[in-house]
Design a protein around this nucleic acid. Structure first.
Lengths: 195, 195
DNA sequence: GCGCTACTTGACACCATGTCAAGTGCAAGC
DNA sequence: GCTTGCACTTGACATGGTGTCAAGTAGCGC
């Protein structure tokens, strides 16, 4: 599948990414993607059986190109829980900005399509693990506020970091990427760190 | 329009509400609504020119039936900023639960439809006003943390209170309505109130 | 009985996704 | 040089939901 015709397949993935960045989400049709990739609409279906598969593959492609694993290293290597929390938020603010177009398309599809839903949920559960790891570290440091358990704090931070919340704060409140990171870090510290 | 045939129109609005509660959002088709209301699909179009109009009218109908204005009185009459904040969050947690089905449908439509988008945004901007009013009161009480301006605090609380965040915390994290209210109040106090 | 109104019935256009079948062009292997 | 296979093209078609159109019907006030 991926080795058979990497060229065209990659062209499709790149075209999808590009178009979704330009007009995030729903507006992008299979025929738009085909035209942008310079091939016929049907050729897209030779590589991806359905729209949802293309979307899922595109998110994987994007992650790979952006080297998510590499950029997560500083988060994992943080010395303290607070540092880990700050770095996770900083990474995430930066990352969401880059994946937003594709993320929004997948998110829209999630409402109706089971495959899209589970692909999305799987990715988000990785973020959730990142949040939990922060609070486990914070607990070890004896810096987790008594008001929160690891679980409830994880839920809350995970919700704060949702793509929808990022979308609202940047698109509707006009926050810059820096505003987002700075204020989320502030709120997280005020909320979860023992005073 | 509303005086011409209140009976059928109301039957349609009630059927829409009911169906959207049962299976929130997208899955509800015009023909489902017609069947549930006991009329033909075309009769629905006699009352609502398009799906989006029906959705918007349904949210208005729901607000009216739930007496939103009346239930907001305690929020407005709060003695202190902190009390106002707690009451706003309590009202909202309770309210979102009731409107969630219709809200989700409108939210899904917002992605593609300009009329749905502006109807939704208008409602959400009322929530935003509620948030701002909280922080103006808190500022008057000299209890707004130095870390936040009225504007940035408004943005942040508004984002925390988004329907999507409520959805994530209740549906995916399994929070009860009480959990939601209690923890949101806690986070808001920790974040925005001067220590 | 007349005419108005609300509603029904059934056909149809539209648009995006996804399927199917036949055809083309190119390159590797004999 | 010819065949075989593969990636892709072309064009037609099914599906499902929204929205439109036109003709017909049932009930009600006059």
């Amino acid at each position: 599948m991926s080795s058979a015709s990497p060229d065209t397949r990659t062209k499709i993935l790149q075209a999808t990414w590009r178009l979704m960045e330009q007009q995030p989400g729903q507006g992008v049709r299979m025929s738009d993607i085909a035209r942008a990739a310079g091939i016929s609409r049907q050729a897209v279906y030779l590589h991806f059986p359905a729209r949802v598969d293309l979307l899922i593959s595109t998110t994987q492609y994007v992650d790979q190109v952006l080297d998510v694993d590499g950029r997560l290293a500083p988060v994992r290597n943080a010395a303290t829980g607070i540092e880990q929390m700050d770095r996770l938020i900083a990474f995430w603010g930066d990352h969401v900005e880059k994946i937003y177009g594709v993320a929004r398309a997948l998110l829209a599809m999630r409402e109706t399509d089971a495959a899209a839903a589970s692909a999305w949920d799987e990715r988000m559960s990785a973020v959730r693990d990142g949040c939990r790891s922060v609070f486990e570290a914070l607990l070890r440091d004896r810096q987790l506020s008594d008001d929160w358990s690891v679980e409830t704090a994880t839920d809350m931070l995970w919700a704060m970091l949702s793509v929808r919340t990022w979308e609202q704060l940047t698109a509707e409140c006009g926050w810059s990427a820096d505003d987002y990171v700075e204020r989320m870090q502030l709120q997280a510290r005020l909320t979860f760190v023992k005073v």
